[in-house]
């Protein structure tokens, strides 16, 4: 194969075939994918969760992962947040011509490894190559399906006053990492993206504690945005304790420098868990027993005080609203 991805590789001809056999099957292959049929055929039993997501992250390589591993983790996590065990995923690539073949290989290899670790099979895929400038290096779409393990499934509308709010670890790591690798921001933060597949931990959690009311991964928009979505869907108020929020010193430092709030930074390997207060101790035990949940802690409580709102109780004991952001956070001087 050539050193760079050419338009020919998306043509459906021999070049495409070579790319599929020498790259995609090499890293992603399994019995179903290897058949190279027009569609994948598989069985699932009972209620099924399905989720799709497209990944356009810039830069495509960052400390702690790349767009390939992220594309697997993101979709696997979304399926698992429904109390489901993710089984199969599809992936569609849109590649800008000229992408170094080595880069593509690193990305696909990372996808393969991420899928194996998560225990999911890539059963269908598609590749398109577009002219230079028509896309930015590479975009990946993944869709995942899995069997729902609990009934009723956790849902954003199931939070109740009195429920406890837990988070599985430190917040803002991914968001700050990606910002830090962007050109033009001259700071260095020794921090890595938290990108990881949470499904094994989540399955243990819902199997032992089926009464978990809400599971959500606070990705884009961060913890604050996700909690706002939950409080609106469930018509409850979330009271967060500022002192309890786990934030790495590196992330705190980077945020103070750029005028950002870690509560609005993306996470790719963390989840929020809303559940009856009686289950808190056991839930934290389960979470902390897994390396991906070692920093898990309780950060707040659902109340009926201000339905649809998230209220932060500050270190001083004051209260303030924690609203939704209008758009992405930008570095600021004032």
């Amino acid at each position: 194969m050539s050193e760079k991805v050419l338009l020919d590789y998306g043509s459906g001809g021999r070049a495409s075939q070579r790319l599929v056999s020498e790259l995609f099957l090499k890293y992603l292959g399994n019995d179903e994918l290897d058949r190279l049929n027009d569609a994948a055929v598989f069985s699932l039993s009972g209620k099924t969760a399905m989720s799709t997501d497209s990944f356009t992250v810039d830069p495509i390589f960052f400390p702690g992962g790349n767009i390939g591993s992220l594309a697997v983790h993101g979709t696997v996590n979304d399926v698992a947040m429904m109390g489901a065990m993710p089984r199969y995923i599809t992936c569609g690539y849109i590649i800008e011509e000229g992408l170094p073949m080595d880069d593509l290989e690193r990305i696909v290899a990372a996808m393969g490894e991420a899928a194996r670790n998560a225990g999911v099979h890539v059963v269908s895929g598609d590749t398109k190559v577009v002219p230079r400038g028509a896309a930015d290096k590479i975009f990946i779409n993944t869709t995942g399906v899995g069997e729902v393990l609990v009934d009723p499934a956790p849902g954003g509308d199931r939070a109740r006053p009195g429920d406890a709010v837990l988070v599985s670890g430190t917040i803002g790591d991914h968001g700050l990492t990606v910002l830090g690798t962007r050109e033009g921001l001259d700071f260095e933060a020794r921090v890595e993206s938290d990108s990881a597949a949470l499904n094994h931990l989540l399955v243990r959690l819902v199997q032992e504690l089926p009464d978990v009311h809400v599971l959500r991964d606070p990705t884009r928009g961060g913890l604050a945005t996700t909690l706002n979505e939950i409080t609106v869907s469930s018509n409850v108020c979330c009271e967060l304790e500022e002192d309890a929020l786990p934030v790495k010193d590196e992330v705190r430092g980077g945020c103070s420098l750029l005028g950002l709030d870690p509560l609005y930074l993306a996470n790719e390997g963390k989840f929020l868990c809303v559940l009856p207060a009686a289950d808190v101790d056991r839930a934290l035990e389960i979470m902390r027993a897994d390396p991906l949940g070692k920093d898990a802690c309780r950060i707040g409580t659902m109340t009926d005080a201000n339905p649809g709102k998230v209220v932060l109780v500050t270190r001083l004991g004051g209260k303030r609203l924690l609203g939704m952001l209008e758009g992405e956070q930008l570095p600021r001087i004032c």
């Binding site: 260095e188 933060a189 020794r190 590196e250 430092g253 103070s256 420098l257």
Partner: peptide, 24 residues
């Protein structure tokens, strides 16, 4: 923001922001 000087090269100082390993 307050930051601690770790290194100085000419008129450029590398500084640590907060306790962690974030430098500017």
């Amino acid at each position: 923001v307050p930051a601690e000087v770790l290194d100085i090269q000419g008129e450029m100082a590398t500084c640590r922001v907060d306790r962690g390993q974030t430098t500017i």
